[in-house]
Amino acid sequence: MSDEKTRPRAQDTGRAPLRSVSRRGSKMRRRLSGLLALGVALVAVGGLYTVFTPEPDQAIAADPAIVREGQQIYDNSCITCHGSNLQGVGGRGPSLVGVGEASVYYQVSTGRMPLAAQGAAAERKPPRYDERQIDALGAFIQANGGGPVLPAERGEALRGEELGRGGELFRLNCASCHNFTGRGGALSQGKFAPNLDPANESQIYAAMLSGPANMPTFADSQLSPEEKRDIIGYIKSVSSNNTGANPGGNGLGGFGPVPEGIVAFFVGLAALIGISLWIGSRQ
């Protein structure tokens, strides 16, 4: 009886190994399924990151030497006012983080930067750097601070063809400061809106993206790239440099109805005085 109690039964010795093997197999399947799910999740996250992350500037990614050249220009001419990390220096210059290459192109290509002297508004002057140096400086600012970038097109390629729509958009968004034909005008506190005749197409586009001085910024959600091009096309069509836009006669500076009204006022006043004198002489 004691031997039969202590001796394991045949059916028990046969089932125990089968249960342990099945448990190990189920654990292995769970681990494999978990690793597979993790792999699928990682691939999905990587795909979403690739789709929704904006592509870096190709010129910056392709040629880091341009960024290094821009850093040398920055260290020589800009670091005193804008800081070693683009953070700005109080009382000297604002932060450049987020301004992008668009702002750099506008400010430097128009000669407003480097700033000659502090004032209510920076005036246009001959630029200190050539186009390559300006692009290099913009590449450095873009690589370290980010912000709006200019389109690849330059010159007349930025002019839209819908001049009627461009004129309407210009009158709605720009004429209150720049006048109806882009000749500029005085603002409050000694500031002024500049004449747009000397500005090239890229400078006008960059100004709409960066909003220099008192000018508001116009993101693509406010003015689409096509609408910006139409505005540029309209500005160039009424520019004093466009000889084909002048129908003849004296343009009176292209300021619109104001100088024309002044001329009409003085001509009419002189005519009234002459008529009054003539009537008095007859009496």
Rank of each mutant, 00 (worst) to 15 (best):
E4F: 12
K5D: 13
T6K: 12
R9I: 03
A10E: 13
G14L: 14
R15Y: 07
A16W: 05
A16S: 09
P17E: 06
R24F: 03
R24K: 07
G25R: 09
G25S: 08
S26L: 14
K27I: 11
K27C: 04
R30I: 04
L32K: 08
S33A: 14
G34Y: 07
V40F: 10
V43L: 15
V43R: 03
Y49H: 07
T53C: 01
E55I: 05
E55F: 04
P56W: 08
D57C: 01
I60D: 01
G70W: 00
G70F: 00
Y74G: 00
Y74V: 02
N76Y: 02
C81R: 06
C81K: 05
S84Q: 12
L86P: 02
G93E: 03
G93I: 01
P94M: 07
S95L: 02
L96H: 01
G98H: 08
V99S: 02
V99Q: 06
G100T: 03
G100I: 03
E101G: 12
V104I: 15
Y105L: 08
T110C: 07
M113K: 06
M113D: 01
A116I: 13
A121G: 02
E123L: 09
R128A: 11
Y129Q: 02
D130G: 15
R132H: 10
I141E: 01
P151L: 12
G155E: 07
E156K: 13
A157E: 11
L158D: 05
R159C: 04
G166R: 03
L169T: 01
L172M: 09
L172K: 12
N173V: 00
C174H: 03
C177N: 04
H178Y: 08
N179P: 00
G182P: 05
G184Q: 03
A186I: 12
G190I: 11
A193C: 13
A199W: 04
N200R: 14
E201I: 09
Y205N: 08
A206E: 06
A207H: 04
L209S: 03
S210W: 05
G211D: 09
N214G: 07
P216D: 06
T217H: 06
A219N: 11
S221L: 09
S221G: 11
L223A: 03
P225R: 08
I232A: 04
K236H: 14
V238I: 12
V238F: 02
V238H: 02
S240C: 00
N241V: 01
N242H: 10
G244N: 13
G244Q: 14
N246K: 10
G248N: 11
G249K: 11
N250E: 14
L252Y: 10
G254N: 15
F255Q: 13
P259S: 08
G261T: 15
F265T: 14
G268S: 15
I273N: 09
R282I: 13
R282F: 11
